[in-house]
């Protein structure tokens, strides 16, 4: 499998799994406006998935469509970060997960849109980055409001940060595929995104009166197909219909 195909899978699996997770809130959010905002965010992410997985199928060259890749792979073939498969938990945990991801996703897409030497990657990123900017502004805004809110909301946000923190280091690890992509100018060295992420996280969390955890342990493996037990449960729900009724059409 080419490095480009792997990269498109990593990007598309992140948006697919996070999009699915966020869509689980539909009809359950604490207020109507947030329910709609979560559903819209999920829609954007699933839309971006169609572009990335479409590119992955094209780069693979075996005739697989975005739908084939979304619905007909098992957990070990998924390349998403472990962070995005984390359970939704309460609203604060969902928002914190979104913020930690958005603070990586938006700068990543910005880099790709401006610098990627692969034209298709740059075009997808240029489209997606405009949506990701809205996601980042919303999630930062809410992290600040809830962190610097009531005693209970503050406590829950600090707990949420601790809950997800050890899943953030994976965003910045590099393997042979990342090095090949960076050498070819297709994608940045993941570690190069770390200082910007640290700065943004630091700024927002300070305003949210939340303290940055000191633990630098990182759970890893998602980008190589080694997942937590949560991914299988997501796939069981997400893939049920096309697996049980393979000829189903809208």
């Amino acid at each position: 499998m080419s490095a480009l195909c792997e990269f498109a899978l990593r990007m598309g699996d992140n948006t697919l799994i996070l999009g699915h997770r966020v869509s689980e809130w539909c009809g359950h959010a604490p207020v109507l406006e947030e329910d709609i905002a979560l559903a819209n965010t999920a829609l954007d992410l699933i839309g971006q998935t169609q572009m990335w997985l479409g590119l992955a199928g094209e780069a693979e060259g075996e005739g697989r469509t975005a739908d084939d890749l979304a619905y007909k792979r098992d957990a070990w073939d998924f390349r998403n970060l472990l962070l995005v498969e984390r359970p939704n938990g309460d609203f604060g945990q969902t928002l914190m997960r979104q913020f930690l991801f958005d603070a990586w996703h938006h700068p990543m897409l910005t880099w790709l849109a401006e610098n990627s030497k692969d034209q298709r990657v740059a075009e997808i990123a240029e489209k997606a980055v405009r949506e990701a900017a809205y996601h980042l502004e919303r999630s930062s805004d809410l992290v600040i409001r809830l962190g610097d809110g009531t005693d209970e909301s503050h406590r829950r946000m600090q707990d949420a940060l601790a809950y997800h923190w050890t899943y953030t280091g994976e965003m910045f690890e590099a393997d042979a595929i990342d090095r090949e992509l960076a050498d070819a100018g297709i994608a940045p060295d993941p570690a190069a995104m770390k200082p910007g992420w640290d700065a943004l996280i630091g700024e927002v969390l300070a305003e949210a009166t939340l303290s940055v955890p000191e633990n630098d342990f990182a759970h890893k493996g998602g980008r190589r197909g080694q997942h937590t037990e949560h991914l299988g449960h997501i796939l069981a729900a997400m893939q049920f219909l096309p697996r049980a009724y393979p000829d189903a059409r809208w």
Partner: peptide, 11 residues
Amino acid sequence: TAADGKRVARL
């Protein structure tokens, strides 16, 4: 007025 991710300026 599109979002550009520059949260602080906007807030």
